[in-house]
Amino acid sequence: MRALTDVETQTLFSKLANYTGRSLNQLIAPTMSNGETDEDRYVFRLHESRVYYVRLSLANLATSIARENLLSLGTCLGKFTKTGKFRLHITALDVIAPHARYKIWVKPNGEMPFLYGGNIVKAHVGRWSEDCPEHQGVVVLGMDDTPLGFGVTARSTAEARKMDPTGIVTFRQGDVGEYLRDEDTLFVT
């Protein structure tokens, strides 16, 4: 377990910023409410090519566990591929959803198709954030505001208005259904 290098940090942050926009600052250096100490700061830690978003005090305690025995700590954000790209996992949803810049809400009838790994078609969209550009990371929510996953827009909002109902508006990148589908590969290499 170690802190990220500069290159890794940049890769990770640009990926996260795709979803959170300016709110990324909140993730990296949240303002301390009173009573919180430096120990309560959240940090990014790399362990076995996975990146964890974890409270500093927790990360410090975790150093007492040997590398091969440590399986997970805090929240896993995703992992670095062998080519150095960063792949965001569904487990990161908890971290990015509260800070999401653009959101898309799916209707109840669109929930299951999305959770089974499908892209979002226009007919299933309940509402969406306005002025969203093309290929922008969005967080997908149910109509009751529960985060269900994330993806990238296929069209900007303006163009998507003109599409027919079966057209895809958002490509799926991660959905909570992966907790079941990819349980074997998602958490431990």
């Binding site: 975790a62 566990i65 025995n69 399986l71 997970s72 700590l73 805090g74 929240t75 908890d94």
Partner: peptide, 10 residues
């Protein structure tokens, strides 16, 4: 959504 856990295999 548990953020305060450290999982070990010991």
């Amino acid at each position: 959504g548990c953020k305060n856990t450290i999982v070990s295999n010991l």
